[in-house]
Design a protein around this nucleic acid. Sequence first.
DNA 1: CCAACATACAACCAGTCGGTTGTACGTTGT
DNA 2: ACAACGTACAACCGACTGGTTGTATGTTGG
Lengths: 118, 118
Amino acid sequence: MTHPEGSEAEDRADAWFHALADRTRRDILRRVLAGEHSVSTLAKSYDMSFAAVQKHVAVLERAGLLTKRRQGREALASGDVEAVRSVGVMLTDLEALWRGRISRMDELFATDTTTEKD
Amino acid sequence: MTHPEGSEAEDRADAWFHALADRTRRDILRRVLAGEHSVSTLAKSYDMSFAAVQKHVAVLERAGLLTKRRQGREALASGDVEAVRSVGVMLTDLEALWRGRISRMDELFATDTTTEKD
DNA sequence: CCAACATACAACCAGTCGGTTGTACGTTGT
DNA sequence: ACAACGTACAACCGACTGGTTGTATGTTGG
């Protein structure tokens, strides 16, 4: 009933936050948001194998946070700012719930002591 | 050098996004942002053991997204909206990098034709 | 042409994750 | 007092993660 089940949006959110939950991936995302980079160029920046970086890029791509385009033998990765914004919107929605609590507490105060409003 | 190493902020970010990368935890966070709930009350909402929900709450607590206060035999959990906001700020900073790319492209256009500076 | 480069992908491994059950301990109501 | 409740925590398990190496395939420059 109230179980958070199989929602499409929740699936996307799982992928988003999982992709962002690794500092190397966040760093890669920063770079490709600032400008296009080939996978091997990215790989040179990190103390791990090319294959490892390739996998990180793949995770970001599957989450829709980055897109790749093939040019010759290189795969150029580019950050998708719209997806990043969507994640931000999710957080904003979370905040909205908190604001709802405030207004409910407000109502409590209203019924609590004598209202100063006369 | 350019490696994203041992930063305090990155550690926190790891915890934040990891905590948010599970739909049950996001759902719990929604509830405790909307108002205080005991762990057992939360547990009744999900099709899993009490211990499992307890662990999810612990993950959110460790990430600083929620705080617990003891009242009698109950542990009341409450969402920390400031932490949620901090996560949002991180995303906004990411967006800023993208805007930087634009302005740099702008500079490219500027240097393309006759340079303004002599 | 061919060596070097860039990518893709599979197989493997240790560690972590999300779930379980079981046990223990403080609190509360009757 | 004591049974029921709420919590805490440890041990365990299968699945997945983040890393590795190795191999195959396409691209490019000399």
